[in-house]
């Protein structure tokens, strides 16, 4: 057991051993869930607050379910409609919440770095559920667990991440995590959706799916946001689908046993063909959702343990 961090703000600060510790714990939960075993209520008596400054149904539901399965008292705050509109700053919101003495805060925010900022001002554990275009660590962890279960390992795989890399926090967290675990990473997408300077991070960049998918073990598709579709970054939805949408023809360039992933929600017929998404021999998209709950259970459980130990040390006056 080597995950000792106080918060889970991103993949960037994590080491291999910490990633493996999180995945191993999540794997236990995943297996228990499949076997119908009721998990120990390790978060009983703890309060978890979900603060979503950006609408999300799936991620919020996943965090809520994970907390409830472990016995936490879960409160959802729809931040879009509340204090920020009244002019309260993020810091004030954080301080107000902190005064309610929660144990875990799950935060999603439209601005990169906002969750880091909030974490500096609270005493509890903070989980980043997505900040701007920066990071979405639990998504990368659930993707990693899905890959590890499907492929039997999480190293020396050829992994293609395709689509709107520029605006994707999922892509950033994934390329950090999969890079740390020593995989071969290929980013595929139109140059307008590729972040500048990204090739300096030890990844290969491709502008065509045919080349990018060649020999890939894993094909990870990203969601294309509606607002990017018309003329700004790409000419049209249909041209995008023609050039970058994953269909049987393009998937044929990858290895025969390559798996197909998507963080959801999918735009069928834009970035992915519906029949591929539903092909139980290739698509692991439903497994990703399942692993999402397991990974979030593991992350919150480990953070709660670390918090408890930190508080115990604090009470004894040891350390900071």
């Amino acid at each position: 057991m080597t995950f000792r961090a106080r918060h889970l703000l991103g993949i960037e600060p994590l080491g291999q051993d910490e990633i493996v510790a999180l995945l191993d714990r999540a794997e236990i939960h995943a297996n228990e869930m499949r076997d119908g075993v009721t998990p120990e209520r390790r978060l009983a008596g703890l309060t978890q607050i979900n603060m979503f400054f950006e609408a999300s149904t799936r991620t919020q539901a996943s965090f809520e379910l994970a907390g409830k399965r472990l016995g936490a008292d879960v409160m959802n705050m729809a931040m879009g409609s509340s204090s920020l509109k009244k002019g309260e700053t993020l810091i004030d919101t954080a301080l107000t919440l902190n005064a309610m003495r929660p144990d875990l805060i799950v935060v999603r925010h439209p601005h990169s770095g906002a969750v880091d900022l909030l974490a500096q001002k609270v005493n509890c554990a903070v989980l980043n559920a997505g900040d701007g275009r920066h990071e979405h660590p639990t998504q990368a962890l659930l993707d990693a667990l899905t890959i590890r279960r499907a492929k039997g390992r999480l190293h020396r795989l050829s992994i293609a991440i395709c689509g709107d890399i520029a605006h994707s926090r999922v892509a950033r967290s994934n390329l950090l995590l999969l890079g740390k675990m020593e995989n071969r990473l290929r980013l595929v997408g139109p140059p307008t959706l590729m972040p500048p300077g990204i090739s300096e991070l030890g990844v290969e960049v491709f502008e065509s799916m045919e080349e990018g998918l060649k020999g890939a073990d894993v094909v990870m598709m990203l969601r294309l946001q509606k607002e990017r579709m018309d003329g700004g970054y790409i000419p049209s939805e249909r041209e995008y689908y023609h050039r970058y949408g994953l269909d049987a023809e393009k998937l044929a360039y990858a290895k025969d046993d390559a798996i197909v992933m998507h963080p959801g929600p999918m735009n069928r017929g834009v970035e992915i063909d519906g029949t591929i998404a539903d092909d139980i021999n290739r698509s692991v998209i439903q497994t990703q959702v399942e692993m999402g709950v397991a990974v979030r259970m593991a992350a919150m459980e480990l953070l709660a343990e670390n918090l408890k130990q930190a508080n115990a040390r604090g009470a004894e006056g040891i350390g900071a």
Binding site: S112, G132, R133, H134, A166, R172, P196, G197, I198, L201
Partner: peptide
């Protein structure tokens, strides 16, 4: 400024 750092931090950038 557009480049590796802005991309990693996910910040809107300018060339």
């Amino acid at each position: 400024t557009a480049g590796k750092f802005a991309s990693l931090r996910g910040l809107p950038h300018v060339s």
